[in-house]
Each structure stands twice: as structure tokens, then as C-alpha cells.
């Protein structure tokens, strides 16, 4: 099976290890992730904040996938939410026509045929394959950062429970790792607060990491570039506010890959220098 991997700005820019691990792990499950030759920003929260053109940007990427005849796999919450929202809106014929008249200028068209699933959804569909691939069960306590927009709003996401999702725990526990429950588990990481208020973003990250650590976690498992951007890239600034608020950050496919018996290098672990204590 082939799917088209939509990287999104955050991952292609800052987290090649997430891309490497996602490709390696899905390949073990028999899913080949193909690259977009071209893509644009999904539009994120920025473009919908300034007007209606965001739908064209999102639809362009959907149209590219349709042309390649593949469904899209996403790695971050925000892109997932934007594309799913666009797909829902494109069911409206008048809007679809308007979008298509513009895409036609680029020899493209969108019908809504190409599905969009976040990596966690794909893994969940492949649960039995995942289970069979576990060769080196992990003995590790981890905390989970559930990627908000993969579950919310529910009308858009249509996956798992919107407020207390369980798919990520089910996936992680297949590896033998224990997903500890911690008081702030179902809270947003707060990464997007950084855009306008660095201090709020940092203190939100500190709250979460501290809560997870106090519950005994030895790593934070994420499935979104934005969460990693806060927890990992702002590690030092978080530590400057709360010294104990520190945990190594693992992307979900890195954790799975380790349990599949893959080497750290195959999963890009050396890129950010992840060390599990």
C-alpha cells in the first residue's frame, strides 16, 4: 500500500527524525510513504485568521494527492485538522466549484477523494500488524501528549474520543511501555501560545512536563511537530523557568520502532540526541 506523506512546515523544517521514523515504521507495516514533489503550507491557523484564501491552499495539496491517486498521511495535529476541515467543506458543491475554477488554472482539480489520516489513525488501523512486529518489548514509563487536532473538534476529526482519547495509549502499550496517567495528560501542550506569548507557551510546557515527571514518566511521547517544538526545542527555556521540568521527547514512531527492534539510527534518534535515562 502507498500513501502520500504530508510533512508540513514544522516537520520538514525541524524534525527530520520524525519523518525518518514514520517512514521506517510504516514501511515495516507494509505501507510505503511517498513524498509530495511539491506542497505548500496547509494554511495552519495563520491563513484562516486573515481571510478565505486558506481553502485554496489546503485544496491545492488535496488536489496534488488526488492526481497521484493516494491518500494523505499527516504527522501534525494542525495540518490534519485543516485538511479534514477543508474536505468537509468541499462537500458543498458551490464551494467545490469555486475552488476548482481556480485550481483549473493550475491544471488541477479537487473532488474530496483523497482521504486524510494522521499517522496515529493509520497505526490504529494497522493494530494487528503492529502487534506482530513487536520484537523487543520496552521497559519504560512514558507520558503521552495527545495531539489535540487529531481528535478535536469532533465533527472534523471523527476519530477517537475528543476529550479523553485512548488510541495513543493503546498503541503505546502494545510496545510494553507503560503510559503513566498524569493530572495534565489530556491538556493541550500549549505550543501555539508561543506564537504570541512566549512566556505562556513556556509555562504551559513546564506545567505539563512537570506533571508527567511527577507521575513517574521517563519520556514524553508526542505525535505532532508542534508539541515537540515546545517540549524539545524550548527545553532550555522551560528548564530556566522550572528546573525539574525536563523529559526526553520521543515521537510515537520512534517508540514503536524501538519495540520493533530497530536501531536508533534507523529512527533518527541521534539527530536530536535523544537519550532515555
Amino acid at each position: 500500500m502507498e500513501r502520500l506523506l504530508y510533512l508540513g512546515c514544522m516537520v520538514y523544517n525541524r524534525f527530520p527524525d520524525y519523518e525518518i521514523a514514520a517512514k521506517a515504521v510504516l514501511s515495516r507495516l507494509g505501507i510505503k510513504l511517498r513524498d509530495f514533489h511539491e506542497f505548500t503550507c496547509c494554511s495552519s491557523t495563520f491563513m484562516p485568521s486573515v481571510g478565505d484564501t486558506w481553502i485554496y491552499l489546503a485544496s491545492y495539496n488535496l488536489a496534488l494527492a488526488e492526481r497521484r491517486e493516494m491518500d494523505i498521511v499527516t504527522l501534525c495535529g494542525t495540518c490534519t485538522g485543516v485538511f479534514k476541515r477543508a474536505l468537509l467543506m468541499l462537500r458543498d458543491e458551490a464551494l467545490r466549484e469555486r475552488v476548482n475554477s481556480r485550481l483549473a488554472e493550475l491544471d488541477l482539480s479537487v473532488s474530496g477523494r483523497a482521504g486524510v489520516s494522521h499517522l496515529l489513525e493509520v497505526l490504529t488501523q494497522q493494530r494487528e500488524r503492529v502487534e506482530r512486529e513487536i520484537r523487543s518489548p520496552l521497559n519504560l514509563k512514558v507520558a503521552l501528549q495527545h495531539p489535540c487536532n487529531v481528535f478535536r473538534p469532533r465533527e472534523i476529526a471523527r476519530f477517537d474520543d475528543p476529550v479523553r482519547p485512548s488510541a495513543m495509549r493503546e498503541m503505546v502499550e502494545l510496545t510494553g511501555a507503560e503510559a503513566v496517567r498524569y493530572p495534565l495528560e489530556y491538556e493541550c501542550c500549549g505550543s501555539a501560545l508561543l506564537i504570541t506569548s512566549e512566556s505562556m507557551g513556556i509555562s504551559s510546557g513546564a506545567d505539563k512536563l512537570l506533571s508527567a515527571r511527577e507521575a513517574g514518566a521517563r519520556a514524553m511521547v508526542v505525535a505532532c511537530g508542534n508539541c515537540a517544538y515546545l517540549f524539545d526545542r524550548h527545553r532550555d527555556r522551560i528548564a530556566a523557568v522550572r528546573r525539574e521540568a525536563q523529559l526526553p521527547v520521543l515521537f510515537l514512531p520512534q517508540l514503536l520502532g524501538l519495540a520493533f527492534g530497530m536501531h536508533g539510527r534507523e529512527l533518527g534518534l541521534e539527530i536530536r540526541g535523544v537519550e532515555l535515562g
Binding site: R152, P153, V163, C188, A192
Partner: peptide, 14 residues
């Protein structure tokens, strides 16, 4: 008044 300092988590929607 600040409509931009928002994590986009949409917990409010739920």
C-alpha cells in the same frame, strides 16, 4: 480582547 493568544486546541468547542 486578545483573539490571537490561543493554542487552537478547540477544547472550548467540545
Amino acid at each position: 480582547s486578545d483573539r490571537f493568544t490561543c493554542a487552537g486546541c478547540w477544547k472550548c468547542v467540545e
